[in-house]
Simulated scan of single mutants.
Amino acid sequence: MVEVITTLAVFFFAALLEIGGGYLVWKWLREHKGKIFGFVGGAILFAYGIVPTLQPAEFGRVYATYGGIFVIMSVIWGYWVDKKKPDRYEIAGSIVVLIGVAIMFYYPR
């Protein structure tokens, strides 16, 4: 159980870094915020590239699973930061994705 909690924490931390870094770069380029937004966003995205290496599985499985976590975190980010309430299809799709990645990453082999 500890391994599941640890791997989930790493997945969610990686998603937060990627979405947060990407958001800052978005602000810099699309909304003409200062260059510091781009620099900090780029540094955060670099850190994101390191975090998934902390996972115990091989690259393909880690990144496929992370993709599912990213979907869920993107919907949550949209709700908290962009103030966009997810519709029922976004929620249903997120649940389907979460079930899929849980099977892919955690099913015993």
Rank of each mutant, 00 (worst) to 15 (best):
V2R: 11
E3M: 08
I5Q: 05
I5F: 12
A9I: 11
V10K: 05
F11V: 03
F13A: 13
F13R: 02
A14P: 06
A15L: 06
L16H: 02
L17P: 02
L17M: 11
L17E: 03
I19N: 01
I19E: 00
G20W: 08
G20C: 04
G21S: 07
Y23R: 02
L24E: 01
V25Q: 04
V25L: 11
V25M: 10
W26N: 03
W26T: 00
K27C: 07
K27T: 00
K27Y: 01
W28C: 12
R30C: 05
E31S: 05
H32G: 10
K33T: 00
G34F: 04
G34H: 07
K35G: 13
I36G: 01
F37M: 04
F39Y: 10
F39Q: 02
F39L: 13
F39M: 08
F39H: 01
F39A: 11
G41L: 07
G41W: 08
G42H: 08
G42D: 03
A43V: 14
A43W: 02
I44E: 02
I44W: 06
I44C: 07
L45M: 14
A47S: 09
I50F: 09
P52A: 04
T53R: 11
L54C: 06
Q55I: 05
Q55T: 00
P56H: 09
P56W: 08
A57K: 14
E58S: 10
F59T: 12
F59R: 10
R61T: 13
V62W: 13
Y63K: 04
Y63R: 06
A64F: 10
A64D: 01
T65A: 14
Y66D: 07
Y66S: 07
Y66R: 05
Y66G: 06
G67H: 05
V71P: 04
I72W: 12
I72H: 04
M73R: 08
M73F: 14
M73N: 06
S74K: 09
V75I: 15
V75C: 02
W77P: 08
W77E: 04
G78C: 14
Y79Q: 12
Y79R: 12
W80A: 12
V81H: 10
K83Q: 14
K85L: 12
K85A: 12
K85T: 12
P86K: 13
D87M: 09
R88I: 14
R88S: 11
R88G: 09
Y89T: 10
Y89R: 13
I91S: 04
G93D: 13
G93P: 12
S94W: 08
I95K: 06
I95H: 02
I95Q: 01
V96Q: 06
L98K: 05
L98C: 15
I99L: 15
G100W: 14
G100P: 13
G100D: 13
G100I: 10
V101T: 15
V101Q: 13
A102F: 15
A102G: 15
I103E: 04
I103W: 11
F105H: 13
Y107W: 15
R109E: 14
R109H: 15
